[in-house]
Design a protein around this nucleic acid. Sequence first.
DNA 1: GTTAGGG
DNA 2: CCCTAAC
Length: 702
Amino acid sequence: MVLKKRLDYGFNGYRVPVIPRAPRSVRRRGLHKKTVEDSQICAFELLAAVAGKLLQESESSASSNAAEGKDQLGIHNDSTKQELLEEGKGMRLECTDQGSCVGSDFVSELAAQERNSKSTLKHFPHAESSSVLGHTSVNTCSDFLKKVGWNVKSEICESKNAVGNFPGKVEGASPDSGESCEGNTESGNGRLLEAEGKQTVDFDVANACSSKDPMEICVNTNTFINSDSSVQLPAYRDPVPNASLPRHRNIVKLCIRDDDENSVACKQRRTKIRAFRPQSRIGYRRIRKLLTSKYWKVAPKLTDYEPSNTNGGLKPVYRHRKTLYTRKRCQDESSSKRRKLCDRGSIIAYDRETSSESISNSPGKGTKGEKSGSAELLHRATGLSSSVKGHQASFESRGSHVKFSIKSFRVPELYIEVPETATVGSLKRTVMEAVTTILRGGLHVGVLLQGKKVRDDHRTLLQTGISQNGNLDSLGFTLESSSAQASPPLFPNGPSFLLPCDAHQQLTRSQASPIMDSGFSNASIDPPPVTNLENHVESCHELVPSPTDNLRDGTVPDCRALVAIPAMNVEALAVVPMNQKTRLSELGQRRTRRPFSVSEVEALVEAVEKLGTGRWRDVKLRSFNNANHRTYVDLKDKWKTLVHTASISPQQRRGAPVPQQLLDRVLAVHAYWSQHQSKQHGGKHSVEPLKISEAQVESVGV
DNA sequence: GTTAGGG
DNA sequence: CCCTAAC
């Protein structure tokens, strides 16, 4: 049983991750990369830890020996506690050092689940924010929830176990509280048992973690188990790992998912994940290696996480001001390289609080300013009682704060295939691997405003306009998995494992016939009329029944073979509906392909003849002003391809043939402007329009 | 927001 | 087409 993540990636995806193009990216990426990796690891570890717990739980229940499992996981209550106690300092530092914040975010997402919260509340109705760090988790949770006004209703898939009391499987997590936010693992077991019948087993772990600070999203390792988030992974047969498990007809499919929809940030932050590393580390490693790609990088830079407070307050290190991320995967086209995941989580900003100062006064404008600003935000958001940290108080009074409540983050469901003859141990490993695989990529949180991605992490909310009430509605968050790729070795056919969003296809592990082709060719993906483009894209997510749903319903396709799981249902994740545009843009849907017609090419050539290259905007305005789907970048790209096309032999050309005559013009124009450096001429018309004759072309040389 | 290029 | 670095 091999787990694999679906990649967005197309065939091209296999390029070597590491090497970016030299010049441009060197600086940034280099930095990034490292950071990312760390983050990834963190996230991964967290996941692994969770998975491990789950597994253990299930196992332990089976064996009726819970304790053992814990030990294996390496999670000790004591240690955990200690960490918690030390959180004040430790947390931040850790985050900073490791850059694990990302992971945390992820966790938090998981953690926050409505269902869980509910249960949490139940137990800790009166939690106080001021509570000692040690038990914070619980208290905080409830408190936070209350404040936020989330729905705390918790649903647990398996109602039986879960809701009533949480056994607190994750004892390590919240030792003091005695009850942890976490959901019970037991349910998982039950499910497992049931699984046979259904073939799907759901492990629900409910974790409720809360954090006062909305902004902060650190993950509490302890809480990990949470589950609202369901992790979905396509299960692939594991070529390597379990030799002992041959393919069997009878395979038990396990689905690990979290149903909870709401997640609360965890106040307590993180425990060290490392300690918890799953047993499956080896396998995990292998996978990880395979999966690693440059795309894995975690979005946030360490710098982002820079501690706002040096003093080591409780403040979270969380710097992504804008967001929370979860990730999802979705595929667009077979050819697409993109790794963005379709999954998104959305956060809603529910309230805005203004302090004495007006928003406009918010502290940060420059980089530094910004930081401070963010710090404030965090601070407030954190809500950790300011009382606790005196130094922070100063911040509090000043700025406006925007509260964000994250309604739901869901972890994709995880599906794994296990032969009935598989041992519990193998099951555990499998689950662990799956989880690990998923998590290890780390998560990226993207912020969308008005459907547009807000990429500048250094801008303040104020600057970005997110703080404006009017904009809250249009604010969205996306989660992207940094691990998008599959390992070539496992899947020689690489692309084959990708599946279209709406296709539920089964793959058999060995053959990996290129499903992509069929899948991508899927009509639904094809370009709709221009006007409907967006809708069309949307269809991918909305119209198509989400795999998840199907799975739940039992309508799921047979998962025995290699199972490819479609993208998660985005809708479910989004708390606040974003308008279609927003969603589309944010989802990162690839635009439908619209080959240039001959007439368009002609228009382009003509425009370039007149304007020269390097003035794509003008070209656009001049000849494609009415073609909304053709951006100047598109025109530039098209020109690029035209030049290339014209340079190769007709036999090598692909796609709709372009009249040779036009290609000749392209070549001539290109040669001409290459020499004349259109840009240098300045004004649009300063340069003589190209009038090249063949002779000229020759002289210019191509 | 544009350009220019790599992917 | 996408994504980004640089402007």
